[in-house]
């Protein structure tokens, strides 16, 4: 699958105060970047293409793209 070039300085940020560990973001990620370990969501930045699909599906508004400091 062709992978989009992504901006180097951005990544998906997980707001853990909002995340309700429902797994919806895992279900829509075609790059298998998101993974839910018990109730702890991780996003593999190597696999993530910043396609934003997970941001759109999240019912809790817990995901956003932020610049890496």
């Amino acid at each position: 699958m062709a992978r989009r070039r992504k901006p180097e300085k951005e990544k998906i940020f997980i707001n853990r105060f909002r995340c309700a560990y429902c797994g919806a973001c895992v279900a829509v990620c075609k790059f298998n970047a998101n993974e839910l370990i018990e109730t702890f969501l991780i996003i593999d930045d190597e696999k993530c293409t910043l396609c934003k699909t997970c941001i759109k599906v999240c019912p809790m508004n817990a995901l956003e793209i932020k610049e890496v400091a």
Binding site: G23, V26, A27, V28, K30, E35, K56, P59
Partner: peptide, 26 residues
């Protein structure tokens, strides 16, 4: 293993959902 199923993908069954194929619920 639920909506976030890994087993299907590990076995080569692509179950990835598009944004029109999943209800976002609270």
């Amino acid at each position: 293993d639920g909506v976030e199923s890994r087993i299907g993908k590990l076995a080569g069954i692509d179950t990835t959902l598009k944004l029109g194929e999943i209800e976002s619920c609270i």
